[in-house]
Amino acid sequence: MTKQQKTRTALVRLAWAVPATVVALLVVVLLARWLRDLPAVSAFVADYPGTVEPPESAPVGLPAWLGWQHFLNAFFLVLIIRTGWLQRTTVRPRGHWTRNNRGLLRTTNPPKKISLNLWLHLALDALWVLNGLVFMVLILATGHWARIVPTSWDVLPHALSVLLQYASLDWPMENGWVAYNALQVLAYFVTVFVAAPLAIVTGLRLSPAWPRNEAVNRAYPLSTARLLHLAVMAYYVAFIVVHVTLVLATGALRNLNHMYAARDEVSWVGFWVFAASVVVMVVGWVLARPVFVQPVAALTGKVTR
């Protein structure tokens, strides 16, 4: 299949996918609104409005360091998803990299030629993990872990109630400056403490630096790691789409101030910081091309076309 044929096929699929998605969302909204009119469901929502009281030790408000952590995490994740998908779908890479087997890069495995897409993917992975370690230290040191770790089983019915309220387009009453709603708590907990470690563990298995130990590799097959790694990528894509949509739909100015300006008010400060961060992401997306990546990659190994 030629490139033009592939493009035409993709456009045809998109032409069907967009209206199908709109119809599916409309059905979900109508079903959710019908359910909320039922007396038993209405009583359930009243009993579990959506927010579980956080521990008394949980801090109120969002500090400035969380804003730049949020930006860095989003920046690295977007580029990691892009380079990972290119690595998976590109048949003939425009460049390759072979590491210098010395210093910090020295391993028991001999140097292996990899694509520039994979080199950039691994480099971004390292920066993302480093940023994640800083984040973990800060939330543990400041007590902010208590805002995203469930401390009561009541979080489950509250989360179900929030999901129903979101689906019916009747947003739950909440104040993210004081405490996240139950569905947010579960989503952030899974993202930080489940998806991130799973991405690291599976990514290490896919790395060319993984040790060639037959017993370990039989117990942890490459195919399993690849499948889980792809599933984690799909989770992050879904999380980003839903997260951004709800941030903008449920009070964009106030939410963006929480996330980027460390203030609980309705103003344009957080929006402009967010807009600047999007510009930086776009610039990073443009620079993540072989013509720009080659000089940087050449500092740590041999680059060939």
Rank of each mutant, 00 (worst) to 15 (best):
G143E: 09
N73M: 12
I148L: 10
R82V: 08
M136C: 13
G284L: 05
V293K: 01
H243Q: 10
Q69Y: 08
H70Y: 05
Q165G: 04
P290D: 14
L30K: 15
V27I: 15
V28I: 15
W171M: 14
V269A: 07
A182V: 03
V52S: 04
L122Y: 08
L118Y: 00
T2H: 09
N100K: 14
V291K: 11
A24K: 08
V18T: 11
P63W: 01
V283Y: 06
W97A: 04
Q69R: 01
G50E: 09
R289A: 12
G203W: 02
A15G: 12
D264N: 11
R263H: 10
A20M: 12
P55K: 02
Q4P: 10
L156T: 00
V12A: 14
T9S: 14
D125F: 03
S223P: 01
Y220F: 15
V291I: 11
H229E: 02
F189T: 01
A219P: 07
V27D: 06
A238D: 08
E56G: 12
A74S: 11
D264Q: 07
A195H: 00
N217I: 01
I81W: 00
F76E: 00
L120F: 05
T202R: 04
R106M: 11
L299F: 05
A146L: 04
N109Q: 13
I139S: 00
A238K: 09
G67C: 08
R99M: 09
I81M: 04
P54I: 00
Q5E: 14
A64S: 11
R94E: 13
W34A: 15
A46N: 14
P111Y: 06
V149D: 09
F193C: 06
R289W: 06
W268A: 15
R88Q: 14
F75V: 05
V283M: 10
S223M: 12
P157F: 07
A141C: 07
R36S: 13
L156D: 04
Y235N: 03
S57G: 15
F271T: 03
A17Y: 07
A297S: 03
F135P: 02
L256A: 03
A126W: 02
S277C: 11
V78F: 03
L30R: 09
M259F: 11
I148V: 15
T51D: 08
W210D: 06
E56P: 01
R226P: 05
V60Y: 01
T9G: 14
W85T: 04
A261V: 01
P150Y: 09
W97M: 00
A225E: 09
W65N: 06
V192K: 07
V241C: 02
V278A: 02
V22E: 07
L160M: 15
I80S: 00
V162T: 10
A126S: 07
V29M: 12
T89E: 10
V293A: 01
P63M: 01
L287W: 03
H243E: 06
G103K: 04
V134M: 03
V91Y: 09
L14I: 08
A126P: 04
V27G: 08
L169Q: 07
A231T: 11
V91W: 11
W177N: 02
P111Q: 00
T7G: 10
T83G: 00
L287I: 02
L198S: 07
L11F: 15
Y236D: 03
G103H: 05
